[in-house]
């Protein structure tokens, strides 16, 4: 099995408080994996660790055949300033950063790819609209178009389908499947288990520690979900020293 990512005894957290504790596991290259778990299970923290913005408190992540530069990341709450005077095309074009860099020119081929990406998320005709005028679902489409242009081998999505309408969700899941078909590795946090069952072949269940990892049907059992909830409630107790030994 080609590995895209391996977690080795990985502990991630903030201010020395672990949010992900002693995680071991591997994400196969080209796999489409959902990360599930109760609130506070460390799902988003895990993605931040993979992007490299959060340094591990312990253990490490190894990156298979590629580097952190091949990673594209869609945060759950992007801190995009929606009042900033940018158009849809401007924002999508930023996905080309790795090719144009800070100072490179946008060439004709780039402009065509920008138009293609915007059309792939169903926003043709919105190119010149200011981002401040978009609905939540439209904004999510714009961010997916930017991800498309990033052309990343490993795509990390944090709750990409929360708070958007059903049609947008169907279109964006289409984009995720397109990535999967192109052999890219996709890791998506989701709390919607129906979506996970329908669209994600692999699932990693997290409750600060690993609960289960494997084919979705084997992971999303009632027993695992119960166990995950119990582990998280135990960890929420401030006196509980989460895990087998202190971090």
């Amino acid at each position: 099995m080609n590995r895209a990512l391996s977690f080795h005894d990985l502990t991630l957290g903030y201010d020395r408080t672990p949010a992900v504790h002693r995680l071991d596991g591997e994400i196969a290259a080209g796999s489409l994996t959902a990360v599930v778990g109760p609130n506070g299970a460390g799902k988003s923290t895990l993605l931040k660790g993979v992007t490299g913005t959060l340094r591990p408190l312990g253990g490490r992540i190894s990156y298979g055949p590629f580097t952190r530069r091949d990673v594209a990341y869609l945060p759950q709450q992007s801190d995009i300033d929606r009042s900033f005077p940018l158009t849809v095309a401007d924002l999508v074009a930023m996905g080309l950063w790795r090719e144009t860099g800070a100072f490179g020119r946008l060439r004709g081929a780039h402009r065509m790819r920008i138009a293609e990406a915007i059309s792939a998320v169903g926003l043709t005709g919105f190119e010149a609209r200011p981002i401040g005028s978009l609905s939540g679902g439209q904004m999510q489409r714009v961010l997916f178009a930017r991800l498309l242009l990033q052309d990343a081998q490993l795509v990390l999505l944090d709750e990409p389908f929360s708070a958007i309408d059903a049609r947008t969700m169907a279109d964006l899941i289409g984009v995720v499947h397109r990535w999967h078909g192109e052999g890219r590795t996709v890791l998506a946090v989701s709390h919607d288990l129906d979506t996970v069952r329908a669209h994600f072949p692999q699932t990693l269940m997290l409750a600060r520690e690993l609960v289960a990892h494997g084919p979705t049907a084997q992971v999303l059992t009632a027993e695992n979900r119960f166990r995950a909830r119990q582990m998280c409630e135990a960890c929420a107790d401030p006196l509980h020293t989460c895990g087998r030994r202190a971090a």
Binding site: T51, A72, Y73, P75, S78, D79, I80, L86, M94, R146
Partner: peptide, 8 residues
């Protein structure tokens, strides 16, 4: 506009 993206 999007400092998080620039850092990434």
């Amino acid at each position: 506009a999007d400092p998080q993206f620039l850092r990434s």
